[in-house]
Design a protein around this nucleic acid. Sequence first.
DNA 1: CTGAAAGCGCTAACAT
DNA 2: ATGTTAGCGCTTTCAG
Lengths: 350, 350
Amino acid sequence: MNIRANEITIRDVAKAAGVSKQTVSRVINDRPDVAPETRNRVKLVIDELGYQPSALARSLAAPRSYTLGVAISGIKYTGPSHTFNGIIETIEELNYTLILKAFSDFKPNQVGTILNSLLARKVDGIIWAVADYDNNRDWLAEWLHKLPVPIVFTDMPETKETSSVFINGYSGGRMAVTHLVEQGYQEIGHISGPLDWWDARERKRAWRDVLSEAGLPNGERQWMEGDWSLESGKMTILTLLNEYPEMEALFVANDQMVVGAIQALCMTGIKVPNELALVGYDDIPEIAYMCPAITTIRQDFHLYGASAVHLLVKQIEATHSGNTEAVPETIEIQPELIVRESSPPKISRR
Amino acid sequence: MNIRANEITIRDVAKAAGVSKQTVSRVINDRPDVAPETRNRVKLVIDELGYQPSALARSLAAPRSYTLGVAISGIKYTGPSHTFNGIIETIEELNYTLILKAFSDFKPNQVGTILNSLLARKVDGIIWAVADYDNNRDWLAEWLHKLPVPIVFTDMPETKETSSVFINGYSGGRMAVTHLVEQGYQEIGHISGPLDWWDARERKRAWRDVLSEAGLPNGERQWMEGDWSLESGKMTILTLLNEYPEMEALFVANDQMVVGAIQALCMTGIKVPNELALVGYDDIPEIAYMCPAITTIRQDFHLYGASAVHLLVKQIEATHSGNTEAVPETIEIQPELIVRESSPPKISRR
DNA sequence: CTGAAAGCGCTAACAT
DNA sequence: ATGTTAGCGCTTTCAG
């Protein structure tokens, strides 16, 4: 294989093969209307010269660029980083090129800037993988109907007007709490994520609903708000333990906070699961290696990212091939309960 | 702000402002040679029309694209994902656009494919953030001298011919083991990473060197090879404990393996740090929240990524502005020892 | 200071 | 099946 050294153009190939640029273009685009013999000759010349077409020029001249724009808000944590990994791999698989924009400070006009800089590179579609918190989605709303290309959201409260992929946090929350109820616990607390995050609200709502339906207590002193961080898990559980001493079991809205909480429990000498049963959320790799291993709700982040790409490409194909207007579609991914040692039947506890 | 809807071109602006395309071009490129009055008029029209220049067309016509290519091998783990985060943010800061390629299977010809697809988009430079293991670097070597743009490596054994940024793993390893020696431990084991990784070899070499220099035992039964994973930490420590029962302290080559090891220790009832002192590597967020909190070597991944970008952009500037040939440069980042509860002075143990 | 012409490397639309 | 003519939207070069 040769490297594109920026010097050989379609012209050179055409000249060397004794055909027109157009014919070379047809060959590199695998068009059917080229004589087999000509095609071979051109291909040979391409190999000899080590010709590599300029994706830039093709994108400019053609209606599509085979480029996808992805906007993210940071990938420091397990969830987003695995989701992003799914996105990358799938884009790669489908032979698109990925242009990335990071969403840093959440100012309304940043939304427009990012969208524009993506469109300025003529992306065929956009994946908006920025977490739904604050009101960044509202800022987006005004752009949506002006967008000349399909867009797919991640973490999106179901909407009819836009395509999105989401993992059902309410359903995951229900699984977690239902599991604890079924194991026989009656005093079940909750540490939520920051409630300006949609996901955090969904999980908390699930906690409350399940307890209500089971006729179990779910008052205000039974839960506290964390901020997803390890430190907040550690701090929050100490307060909660104080305010809600009868607590037998605890549903924590993400695994990071569980790790923090475990350190606090360990330091105060409270035994898991004998004195407190625990269920987390996310199934980060570390959580299975706590002592005891923690029951959690697994989110298939990789599938999540992959689905977003597949959906987007589907919409793009629809726009380009048919005369069919792309119809918004929502893909819902179900989380899964992973039972480990931190949530045994209550009766089995000493 | 208006959104680029792909319909307004520089031509429309020129017409509306009653000037030529070139003048508009000069304005959007902030060239000095435009009458202030003209400039203002053009700017006004640009705003009114909501004109957004096509980055694609500009890249094609101009000598630079203000686009950087980044090749990574996956960002599922803390280290790479934080490094990548530093890369993204810095690229964003410097107003470049990021094109991403993922390196999945390590076949020699994938290297060429990735490089070509980046060059086909006319990137101004490349960051190769693929971990140095196996022999993927060798495959790269043959392309290097043909590359028409600067490239910066991450995780690179120091070389004179190429620019790179690296965190000194040998020095980090020395810090870890020296700390244990200074705390008074004499029987110090090691769980290494997979030895086809450069970093793993460096850390192990440091372990051996420090022990040798201190006149402490460092035989074959005192260390074992893991594979960076949680599970391997768990498994490896059990074997090691068996083969090296006198072990008082242990240097583990990354924090993930520490987490796995702690579970194994907890299950077998071995107390940290009283029966075994522990030092990890990486300072992943979770490691400070173990019980006890783990001493580790912090790597500033964010700075790492940021440095790679700064170095690359520096090389690009050199190539474009001056007639100076870009001189390869290496940036070395020093890791830092973070002392926590898992490595107290031996004497203080009960 | 401003404009006209030429071209970046390719594809689309129409010829033949 | 192949070639020709026009662009894609911008920048560069060279006039003036």
